[in-house]
């Protein structure tokens, strides 16, 4: 079919927009290399001093460690619970199941600020404010729906007759699940886990409400840096955060490609 001029112009415009969606974030790279003592662009020379600062300051290092621990544990929990639930709803496959599914997706829909209030009010009497447990539980609730969505998408392409075959051959429920279903949907589970980790790794609004002094995640420290808007170390942190996110994206993209055959 002949492509009309307006369509061509639109395609050009769309490419510009797509580049503009990414490009602004890259400005953190030059800022992180400035030799000056304030947030600025390097003019004559480049310096890695703020990366050295980032990787030697006890505060930033502890924030990295905390974010990693909270992200890893909540991902493990969310992936387990979300995968089990997706398999359960897939087996049930009834209208009641679909109602339950929409209820379980609510944490994705409710504005984070409301979730933050709800968690904060719940955790104060339980003594979970400013604790690892509190943040891990909160992040698990917020990320498990992401696992539910990805794993469910994977299950939609899984041949249910394999499950029946396994049972007919005498395998128990558990054996069927671990040896037949889970291996069949592994890319979906991996994609969901990466998704869950990044959502915890980046989470700021709920963290602002639940942390004070002892738990200080990477986004929390970046938030402070952004609000003070003076120390170039924030730029270096932003670059590292972006690099890790891109790595996670690459893993996710590879896993997601395998969940959608011929797509």
């Amino acid at each position: 079919m002949r492509v009309s001029l307006p369509a061509k112009l639109n395609t050009g415009f769309a490419w510009v927009l797509l580049v503009l969606l990414i490009a602004p974030a890259l400005v953190a790279i030059p800022v992180s290399l400035t030799p000056k003592t304030y947030l600025s662009f390097p003019t004559d020379e480049l310096s890695l001093q703020y990366y050295r600062e980032l990787f030697s300051s006890p505060e930033w290092l502890s924030s990295f460690a905390q974010s990693t621990v909270i992200g890893a544990v909540s991902t493990l929990l969310a992936t387990t619970i979300g995968t089990l639930c997706a398999i359960g709803l897939w087996r049930v496959s009834s209208p009641a199941g679909e109602v339950v599914r929409s209820v379980l997706l609510l944490p994705l829909v409710v504005p984070p600020i409301i979730a933050a209030m709800a968690f904060s009010r719940l955790f104060v009497p339980l003594g979970l404010i400013d604790s690892y447990t509190g943040l891990i539980l909160a992040h698990t609730v917020l990320s498990a729906p992401l696992v539910l969505i990805t794993v469910s998408a994977s299950l939609a392409g899984f041949d249910a007759r394999l499950e029946q075959a396994s049972r007919n051959l005498g395998a128990s429920n558990w054996v069927t699940m671990w040896r037949v279903i889970v291996p069949g949907i592994r890319p979906g589970i991996l994609a969901g886990a990466v998704f869950a980790f990044i959502s915890s790794w980046d989470e700021i609004v709920v963290t602002l409400f639940l942390s004070k002094f002892s738990v200080y995640t990477l986004p929390r420290r970046m938030w402070n840096g952004i609000r003070e808007n003076t120390d170039p170390t924030v730029a270096a942190a932003a670059v590292v955060l972006m690099a890790i996110t891109l790595l996670a994206f690459a893993i996710w993209a590879l896993a997601a490609r395998r969940t959608r055959p011929a797509a």
Partner: peptide
Amino acid sequence: GLLLISFWISVLVRTFSWLML
């Protein structure tokens, strides 16, 4: 690919960049 990468860029990184820009 470009679209999804932009999805994944942290809101904090974007906000910081806009401050600079």
